[in-house]
Write a protein that binds this DNA or RNA. Structure first.
Lengths: 116, 116
DNA sequence: TTATACTACCTTGTATAAAAAGGTAGCTAG
DNA sequence: CTAGCTACCTTTTTATACAAGGTAGTATAA
């Protein structure tokens, strides 16, 4: 049992990503329909690591909330894939999250400048 | 009991802030020593609301991790205040989080551009 | 001098959500 | 026909923000 006092920098970095995951996933899917592995790869390339155990429940939540829809598609090599795409609700929510992201950036960058 | 299916936009906005709180609090304190109400006010002005129940435990965590230190100071009107300031460890961690924030901004803005 | 208001501290319980770990099953190739 | 890969999904654990509730110092005014 490790008590883990102290701040783990990696953990803090991870925290920063967390709240933005939903937004990032919508961003990825908005480019073109994608299935889980596509999404994980895209986020990895953007240095935003996610694992399956995080992604699947999140996709289900977004689907149930009506932001995403999916259809099955067979693969040339392996089991069939669930391709997700944005619904019109999803597109509209994404637009709003875009605004939220911009505001968040301004807020934090204002704090950063105030320090210099 | 409200089942709350669906995505609550307000809630999502809140999520976005969450992971960045630690960073923001360090930013605020780095400007000058501050006690809880100072910090809450500063974050409020930056549109990053926090409540006491969130802040106090977080300050304790950062203190125990060696990023912050505090000293008591009497107030002209009311009970004494705990003024926090960054330790040298705190300053160095903040520098690293600054880098993390910049990377995060690039990553997400890259995803945003890729969509347009 | 006591009561009320206010400020400041802190803790406990709850809800949410990411991550770790484990599980099922289709498809392919040897 | 079996070993390995890919893809899906679920359960359990852990972390953490927030809501709510609690203690106590100080000031003000009856």
């Amino acid at each position: 049992m490790s008590l883990e006092l102290g701040i783990n920098l990696e953990n803090t970095r991870a925290q920063m990503r967390k709240g933005l995951l939903e937004y990032c996933i919508l961003l990825v899917i908005s480019r073109q329909k994608a299935y889980a592995s596509d999404i994980i790869l895209a986020l990895k390339q953007a240095d935003l690591l996610v694992v399956e155990g995080t992604l699947y429940p999140l996709l289900s939540r977004l689907k149930n909330a009506g932001l995403l829809d999916y259809h099955w598609q067979e693969s040339k090599s392996g089991p069939p894939r669930k391709y997700y795409e944005l619904t019109s609700l999803g597109t509209s929510i994404l637009k709003q999250l875009d605004g939220t992201w911009k505001n968040l950036q301004s807020s934090i960058n204002a704090l950063r400048k105030a320090r210099l």
